[in-house]
């Protein structure tokens, strides 16, 4: 090549700076802000989400160093869960009555006693297009070693309004058994 265009290195530099800016912005905001997670997911999680361990990890907390120098706080006891006794929930596929995957479980709503009352699902869609966030009653889900099952079909979930954070959730409830008065599938 007889003459190399001189401004080229400048452009390379501009491109590199352009590349670095987003990653620098990420590095600047430090640890990932944990979304206010429902308390139900904190306890005996034997597996961790595959992110850098946030400050509150699954290992039991040691005595807080800021307590006034009174009687020593005993370290937390430990218990082990059988591998098959408890299952991961977040992000897991949810299968419909026909056995195909219809949704992903993205959040769990609990009451003040810590009992789960509803699950938030990313439902439907094809290759990510058209999925909707809906809330279903906890009792509509079955948890098995093969995965999570949802007892409501697509037809039953038609017209269910989307779940919006901060607003009262409209839950899809399994219909009452035949024989009693038919309760509507959606409230």
């Amino acid at each position: 090549m007889l003459s190399r265009p001189r401004p080229l290195p400048l452009r390379y530099a501009a491109a590199c700076i352009g590349l670095l800016l987003p990653t620098l912005a990420f590095a600047a905001d430090g640890d990932p802000p944990a979304e206010a997670p429902p308390a139900a997911t904190a306890p005996p999680a034997t597996t961790q989400p595959p992110v850098d361990p946030p400050p509150a990890s699954a290992t039991p907390p040691v005595a807080a160093p800021t307590t006034p120098p009174q009687a020593e706080v005993p370290p937390a006891a430990r218990e082990t869960l059988e591998a098959r006794a408890a299952f991961r929930t977040m992000g897991q596929d949810v299968k419909g009555p026909s056995g195909i995957v219809v949704a992903q479980l993205v959040n769990i709503l609990v009451n003040t006693e810590g009992q789960p009352v509803a699950a938030i699902l990313d439902y439907g869609g094809f290759l990510g297009v058209g999925k909707r966030r809906i809330a279903v009653a906890w009792r509509a889900l079955q948890f098995t070693p093969d995965g999570i099952g949802l007892g409501l079909s697509r037809e039953q979930l038609r017209g269910l309004p989307e779940f919006k954070d901060g607003e009262p959730a409209v839950l899809a409830v399994p219909p009452a058994a035949p024989g009693t008065a038919e309760a509507p599938a959606n409230r």
């Binding site: 997670p37 992000g91 993205v106 290759l127």
Partner: peptide, 18 residues
């Protein structure tokens, strides 16, 4: 690399914010 990346990351238990 379309909307499917979000689905994949959800399955990896990433939160909405992440």
């Amino acid at each position: 690399f379309g909307p499917f990346v979000a689905v994949y990351l959800t399955a990896q238990a990433w939160t909405d914010v992440e």
